[in-house]
Amino acid sequence: MMKLFARNRHTVQRIGFSLITLMAVVTVLPIVGTVIFILFKGGSAVSWEFLTGFPHDGMRAGGILPAIIGTLYLTIGTAIFSVPLGIAAAIYLAEYAKENRLTRLIRLAIINLAGIPSVVYGLFGLGLFVLFLQFGTSILAASLTLSIMTLPVIISTAEESLRSVPQSFRTVSISLGATRWQTIRRIVLKEALPGILTGVILGLERAAGETAPILFTGAAFFLPRLPGSPFDATMALPYHLFVISTQVPEMPIQIQYGTALVLLVFVLTMNVVATVIRSRARARRQW
């Protein structure tokens, strides 16, 4: 009787494990499926000319260079504003701020900011940067709008990774005659950097892929040349994809999928970089 029971338990366990494995596979399937599908449909469109040429024939032919460069500019622009500001805010929250009503309010604001739909950021950016500050529909206005959207991600991941650095390191460093700032710079930031970078990349990745925030603030339907200054509007991959998928009649389907593929590779590359940084750092970590 006991034996039978034991065998039963093993069977139950095996079934349980199989189910869990199955579910894990099921969650991966859509991602892998999407990538393969896009690769299959769009792979044939991607060529050297496609990556380095300008669109022509009402965007039904030619390349997508201005959109690629535009997305690159927007990502860099977003990084310029959101990375220093986000890290500074995280350092303040994790290392200096006392727990009080103000810091609780700041955290609440950050959490809520992260939940706001991206189109709302777009409208806000339109009101503040494009109209009120008169930056016009420009890379600058779009980057600032994207920065506001990315900041919560960067701040909360950076704060998290600063906090995960053991308190004892700080105490020891201070006891050896370091100031607070020296301790942060030489120990805490160094140890938290991989986590911070991961958050930065994830935030920028989201910025690179968004359409709604740049829709009213910086994205151009079509431009025959590359933007020359931060005050120019720009084409961008996600918006271009939206345009050629919905606004242009008789659009060759490969170009749509080709554009999607380029955007996907752009974003996935950032993801892979983040993963590599994280796993390298974890292997090297001494605590």
Binding site: S168, V172, S173, I187, Q286
Partner: peptide, 9 residues
């Protein structure tokens, strides 16, 4: 300190 805390270096 009671517990040795080598800094990560």
């Amino acid at each position: 300190f009671a517990r040795p805390v080598p800094l990560p270096m």
